[in-house]
Every structure is written in structure tokens, then in C-alpha cells.
Design a protein around this nucleic acid. Structure first.
Length: 424
RNA sequence: GCGGGCGUCGCCAAGUGGUUAAGGCAGCGGCUUGUGGCGCCGCUAUUCGGGGGUUCGAAUCCCCUCGCUCGCCCCA
């Protein structure tokens, strides 16, 4: 029989990992709730059309990375490859923008059919934020600061905030045709990948890894030069505000985000500790998207964090908290004592204690060994002797200064027991 | 989708054509039927990701396939 296993690029998260994930997710939630940002949960699956219209048919994500299939009603369905399009859809469908600007966050699995690598899976997880109806550079700065503060709270080191502006869609279009004209003249000197992108995605060529192409590009028209005055000023404003907030950044003129909807501000938070999957947070402004999906013109801005990459980086920088050990390890043996131990365990757990109940029914000596390994502070022991006496034995497993004499406590005095267990 | 590396027990790993596939960790049992952290003893892969081939003989060589990994593309 062949072994059953996960699909390629889709991993289980096991208890040791989920504990870390939860800590990190809690931190995100905490920051969001302090900023008055509500969570929005959309289905994992949407009509294919949403992503065609939202992300852009010519992007790689839509063109070759989507999990698309027909359901029994012959509808074309797609597992969401990113979060923004669905959030916009939801916000419109539910009329959430009728009362002015709104901020939302979302999280969960996304799906892209790509060749897996470290930090790039077919099912991966993002947490993202979207601001709607907030048009200014100050709004951009608030959004960026939110991400920056979360990473700071995680104590992440050596992060770079890279910043660029793409201008308005008119600026971008003007530059695009100018760049294509220039690239056509240099076509024969470009590397193969870049040649293919001349018409498909010329801005991406600016980011080519080919050194000859890069040299050539030194003379290429610059996006910044074709920006309108107001776009330029907007970008300068943003930089000024970030300086005021004391958030360090560097301008990366080659930063061109891949999805069609971006305009004006584009940014990434990167690290050089993750190999080629170096972006842990990417985002930008998408003023045209809401209208594109059928709403009224609503300037919007957002970012998304790649959870897997973030978790790898936290691990790399040794920022995981050590896992909690139980307060109590409950040693128990005997036909009457075992149910009694379970009963007491329930009461102690209800009182807020972390209790690990031994279920091996093996010798006391074995159970003590396990108690030690569990790293619990206390051992409770109940065997037939204690059961008959209506008592439970309490013993301290760790020496942390205070001396505690092993003793028996009557079960009637449960509150006393609880207060002892909680007192160290 | 393209190119490089890899795949031996739950984990880490030795073995690179020849009788029973080292070792460590973890697990289980015992020394010690009710008191631990140390120590000692024992047990745990008919099988080397899967399939086919070469050979008297394969974990070791060849082919295919699956998966992981690194880089490219792209992106979080």
C-alpha cells in the first residue's frame, strides 16, 4: 500500500509549531485591535473572474499559478492566491464602505501552484491589512508603521524597509510606453527573460538579475522622471513623515510590485537571512481596484505578511519563546485512584492550572521519570493508599529557592491545594 | 515551468557491489511491584522514498517516478 501524504507544497503544522504561530498571531491581533482594525474572513474559494479582474490576467499569479477548477455546477472556481481581491469583493458585497473610510485585516491560507522552496509553498499563509478610503501619504505612513511596529514588537533585527513610488496609473502608463520604446531599440542586447517581458511586463525588467541587462539599464528612462509633480510631492511627503516617525527606509527605484493593481506607494520589508525569498511583508497602494471590481472610486492601501517566512526568520533569530511546561504532573495508579485523579485534574484545570495527567498506569518510578521530563513544577500523587485516606500527596519537583516539605493534603481542602500550587 | 544537490528506523546518522544494514537521541521493558532527575542491562529497520533494470549477488551501478532542498522565474 502506498503511503498517504500531503500534496506537494502543502505542509502540516504540528503542535510545537502551532504554539509559536499562535503567539505570533496573537501579537498581530493585539496590534490590530489597538488600532481599531476589524477582522474580515472571506471564503478560501472565489469565482475565477474575481482574480482575473482584480489581479490582472497577464500577471504570473493569474496566468500560471492559480488552482482553478470547475465545480459540479460548472462554475469556474479558484482557490484564493492572495487576499486583497476577496476583501475588496466582500467589502463591496456587504456595503461596508458606505460610511466612510474603513480599516480591515484578514489572515489565512492562500494557494499558488508554484515550485516549492523554503519560504514558498503551494499552500501558504498571509496576514494582511487593507485601508479603504484613505488617500494621503499620512495614511500610507500609518499603514507602514503598523507593520514596522509589529516586527519591532517581535524583536526582529536587520529588516529593511524598501520604498518606491509608481505614480498614478497615468504616470505609469506614460512611463510604460516610453520604456517599451527604449527597450525595443536595445532588444538584441537584453537577456532572454527580459526579452520576453518587453511587452508583457516591461517594468519588471528593471529588476532583472542579469548583470549585462542591468548595465544597459543605466541609460534607460527613469520612472521617477515621468512622474507628475503631484506624484513626486506625494512621495516626498511620505518620506518626510517616515522620518518624523523615525522609521528608517531606503529608496529602491527598482521595486516594482508584480500585481497590476498597485500605484503610487510600493514597499517591501525584506531581510537578507532568507535566501531568495527575502520579502516578509509587501504592499502598496491600489487606488483603482475598488472601482475595477464594481465599486465607486476608493483610494486604498494595504500590505500582506508571509507567515511562513516570518516564522522561519523568527526561528533563525532565535526569537521563539520556550514552550510552557505544566504546573502540575499528576502521578496516579490504581483502580479507584485513577478516576479520582481525573476528577481532581478537572477541578485544578478549572481553577486555571496547567495539569498533565499521567495515563500510563505504569510504576510510580516510571511516572516520576516522566514527571521530571515534563518539567512540571509540582507532582501530585494519588495511589490506593491516598485514595483510601481521602488525600492527595503533593511534592515539589523543582528547587527554586523555597523549601517545600512533601505532604498529604485532604481532598476536602481543595482550595488550600490550589493556593499552594499557584503560590510558586 | 527551467537548472544544481539530496532521499538509510519517529529524529540525527555510518555504510559507496558480497554472509545477520553500525552508532547516537527519543520510545518501551528491567535492575528498583509506591517515589524521580544519574547509572547499568535488554528490546525496537527481513529493509535502505517508490517502481523497473543490470548482476551469481545492490542501500550501494543504470533508467523512470515521487518528494525535499538550493538557484532562476515570480511573489508573501
Amino acid at each position: 500500500m502506498t503511503k498517504l501524504k500531503t500534496l506537494r507544497g502543502m505542509n502540516d503544522l504540528l503542535p510545537e509549531q502551532t504554539a509559536h504561530w499562535q503567539e505570533v498571531e496573537d501579537l498581530f491581533r493585539h496590534h490590530f485591535s489597538r488600532a481599531g482594525i476589524g477582522e474580515i474572513r472571506t471564503p478560501l474559494m472565489e469565482t475565477t473572474d474575481l482574480f482575473f479582474r482584480g489581479i490582472g490576467e497577464l500577471t504570473d499569479v493569474v496566468g500560471k499559478e492559480m488552482y482553478t477548477f470547475f465545480d459540479r455546477g460548472n462554475r469556474s472556481c479558484t482557490l484564493r492566491p492572495e487576499g486583497t481581491a476577496a476583501v475588496v469583493r466582500s467589502v463591496l458585497q456587504n456595503g461596508l464602505l458606505s460610511q466612510g473610510p474603513k480599516r480591515f485585516w484578514y489572515g489565512g491560507p492562500m494557494f499558488r501552484y508554484e515550485r516549492p522552496q523554503a519560504g514558498r509553498l503551494r499552500q501558504f499563509h498571509q496576514i494582511g491589512v487593507e485601508f479603504f478610503g484613505l488617500p494621503t501619504a499620512r495614511d500610507d505612513a500609518e499603514l507602514i508603521a503598523l507593520a514596522w511596529d509589529i516586527f519591532s514588537a517581535l524583536k526582529l533585527k536587520d529588516l529593511n524597509l524598501e520604498l518606491n513610488t509608481l505614480g498614478t496609473s497615468e504616470d505609469r502608463e506614460r512611463y510604460r510606453s516610453e520604456l517599451i520604446k527604449w527597450l525595443e531599440k536595445k532588444y538584441d542586447f537584453l537577456d532572454k527573460d527580459s526579452q520576453e517581458r518587453v511587452y508583457k511586463n516591461p517594468l519588471r525588467i528593471l529588476d532583472s538579475k542579469d548583470s549585462k541587462t542591468q548595465q544597459l539599464l543605466n541609460d534607460a528612462p527613469c520612472l521617477y522622471d515621468s512622474l507628475s509633480e503631484s506624484s513626486k510631492n506625494r512621495f516626498l511627503d511620505l518620506q518626510k513623515i517616515l522620518n518624523t516617525l523615525e522609521i528608517p527606509f531606503q529608496i529602491n527605484k527598482r521595486l516594482v510590485r508584480g500585481l497590476d493593481y498597485y500605484c503610487q506607494t510600493a514597499f517591501e520589508i525584506t531581510t537578507d537571512q532568507l535566501g531568495s525569498q527575502k520579502t516578509i511583508c509587501g504592499g502598496g497602494r491600489y487606488d483603482g481596484l475598488v472601482q475595477e471590481l464594481g465599486g465607486s472610486s476608493t483610494p486604498s492601501v494595504g500590505w500582506a505578511v508571509g507567515m511562513e517566512r516570518l516564522m522561519i526568520l523568527l526561528n533563525e533569530q532565535n526569537l521563539y519563546q520556550k514552550k510552557d511546561s505544566p504546573d502540575v504532573y499528576f502521578i496516579n495508579q490504581g483502580i479507584s485512584a485513577e478516576p479520582e485523579a481525573l476528577s481532581l485534574t478537572r477541578k485544578l484545570r478549572t481553577a486555571g492550572l496547567n495539569v498533565e495527567l499521567d495515563s500510563s498506569a505504569s510504576s510510580f518510578s516510571k511516572q516520576f521519570k516522566k514527571a521530571n521530563k515534563s518539567n512540571a513544577k509540582w507532582a501530585l500523587i494519588i495511589g490506593e493508599e491516598e485514595f483510601s485516606a481521602g488525600e492527595v500527596r503533593i511534592k515539589k519537583l523543582k528547587f527554586d529557592g523555597e523549601d517545600f516539605k512533601e505532604r498529604n493534603i485532604s481532598k476536602i481542602e481543595i482550595s488550600k491545594l490550589i493556593s499552594i500550587l499557584k503560590s510558586y
